[in-house]
């Protein structure tokens, strides 16, 4: 423990409205804390910058998971355990059930929240690639109201997002529109449990005959933020999976993905490895579509 906890303030506003008012009154003064699985690590190593924190962990109105107009709406306080236990998610959004199961281990999943994973905005985060391919929208809430964005536009750069200092994530909304899509996800981490991803790829695709009618790809640790792999999607949309053109399709997909990959060398892996494995995962997905 390398921090002096007496230097930190933490309170739990009685209501969400009260919390939003506090955030609005002095934007940037407070850091919201939910499950604590990121911020408490920072506290432990002596790197938690913000001295004033507001807990939102107790707001049950942000912990929900419901079906609404052909969508699933997931409150920001929903834990990974909640996601894993949901029959709705398991049935309609299997990739999200999978990515939730890869987020830390059981004890972290019992505490960590979807909202926290999103605003922490790590390029290696497990769940954002899935939200990207599922075409999620994100609703932010502040004292002045709510606004909803395409989740695609939410991440701006390394640990930078559209979230304003007076806002909280309210919920994420995902269309229930993927019956009949082929779905793929694979995380290549440092080990099988408690792993931070070196690279991860999520994908959904709809085929018509041997053609790829639609494909969406999302990746972690491929750039400075979670991304949709739009170049690869473009190169592959309409491409043929027929035996005589499969190799060309694979090469086109790999080449396009290579163009948009900007991975880094860090303590966990190398840029060369990340790029190559991302291409291999894409190929694995495409080959599965051809079967």
């Amino acid at each position: 423990m390398r921090s002096d906890v007496t230097e930190y303030e933490l309170s739990a506003p009685a209501t969400l409205q009260e919390m939003l008012s506090l955030l609005a009154a002095e934007p940037g003064k407070y850091t919201p804390i939910a499950g604590g699985t990121e911020l408490m690590v920072a506290l432990g190593v002596g790197r938690l910058q913000s001295r004033s924190l507001l807990s939102l962990q107790h707001f049950q109105e942000l912990r929900f998971l419901r079906e609404e107009d052909g969508h699933v709406v997931i409150g920001a306080n929903t834990t990974f355990t909640d996601l894993r236990r949901s029959a709705l998610i398991a049935e309609h959004l299997p990739l999200l059930a999978q990515s939730a199961s890869w987020t830390g281990a059981i004890a972290n999943q019992n505490r960590g929240t979807l909202g926290g994973n999103i605003v922490n905005a790590s390029p290696a985060a497990d769940n954002p690639p899935v939200l990207l391919v599922y075409g999620a929208s994100i609703t932010l809430i502040s004292a002045s109201g709510m606004r909803t964005l395409d989740y695609n536009d939410f991440h701006l750069g390394y640990k930078k997002t559209q979230l304003r200092a007076d806002e909280l994530v309210h919920s994420v909304r995902i269309p229930l529109a993927y019956q009949g899509y082929r779905q793929y996800i694979r995380k290549v981490g440092t080990r099988n449990a408690l792993a931070i991803s070196k690279i991860a790829l999520a994908g959904i695709a709809r085929t018509e005959g041997t053609r790829i009618a639609e494909i969406r790809l999302g990746a972690a640790s491929l750039t400075d933020r979670p991304i949709r792999c739009l170049a690869a999607e473009k190169a592959l949309t309409g491409a043929s999976l027929a035996a005589d053109s499969l190799e060309a399709t694979l090469q086109a997909g790999r080449a396009a993905l290579a163009m948009e990959a900007k991975p880094i060398d860090d303590i966990r892996s190398t840029a060369r490895y990340r790029s190559a494995v991302a291409e291999n995962l894409l190929e694995e997905f495409l080959r599965s579509l051809a079967e």
């Binding site: 933490l10 924190l53 807990s55």
Partner: peptide
């Protein structure tokens, strides 16, 4: 905590209320 496994090193005391 409430029957669920948690790591107590990551929980601020206030959230145990």
């Amino acid at each position: 905590m409430n029957g669920e496994l948690v790591n107590s090193c990551l929980i601020p005391a206030l959230q145990a209320e």
